[in-house]
Write a protein that binds this DNA or RNA. Sequence first.
DNA 1: CGGAAGATCCACT
DNA 2: GTGGATCTTCCGA
Length: 231
Amino acid sequence: MSESFAGSTVDMPNVWTRARVSSRSSQYESLPGSFFTRSARDVAPELLGRLIVRMVKGRRLVLRIVETEAYLGIADRASHAFGGRRTARTESLFLPGGHAYVYLIYGMYHCLNVVTGNETDGEAVLIRAGEPVEGESYMIRNRKLQGSVKPGAVAGGPGRLSDAIAVDLSLNRVRIDDNRGPLRIAAGEPTGRSDVATGPRIGIDYAGEAMRWPLRFAVRGHAHVSRPYPW
DNA sequence: CGGAAGATCCACT
DNA sequence: GTGGATCTTCCGA
């Protein structure tokens, strides 16, 4: 049984400390659209270890994805597209895989999703947490953090992550497989299956049976996840 | 047209 | 652990 690891990062295995970082800028090239035109159930765990590349004000902010959740669209009671609901908000869920779905939650936070599957599915992957790779000082500024910054404080949580890399509604519907776009996802170093932890999704108590579906994925033992593993 | 709830976070007890 | 912030969306009357 893995126990709560919040606050104890020193002896935690971190698969990334050994990763070799290329100096070539091609390391930030977008994954192809075909990566996203598959089920969110498959895409979500494969996004772990990938890089979110956010271009804003001429700067490049990079996060390594460490936690995701799959939302399975029409058949998933937790999904905004459940039952085929198409509203102004959910319209971007019905774009082909490879677009961004950004929405406002609780009147004050933005959630960043990547649309997956095809334009009839309404599927998406919520990006729940990331580890700063480049531009961390700007992320800290965007988050208005003071003093010492604990692991996970910058982008551990969907609302925090969006604030950190300046994701708002202006990015709704953008293509994330466009190498010249403001938001993209690069290959990074995908997390191996044995390092992926799986569990139920967060904050969907209203979703009935779907509440227990194992569609939350995180890098096992990673300090920057949105909350400690109960798994 | 009104009211409730939300894929969250933070301050405080 | 609890409550408040803040506002769009959605559903029922």
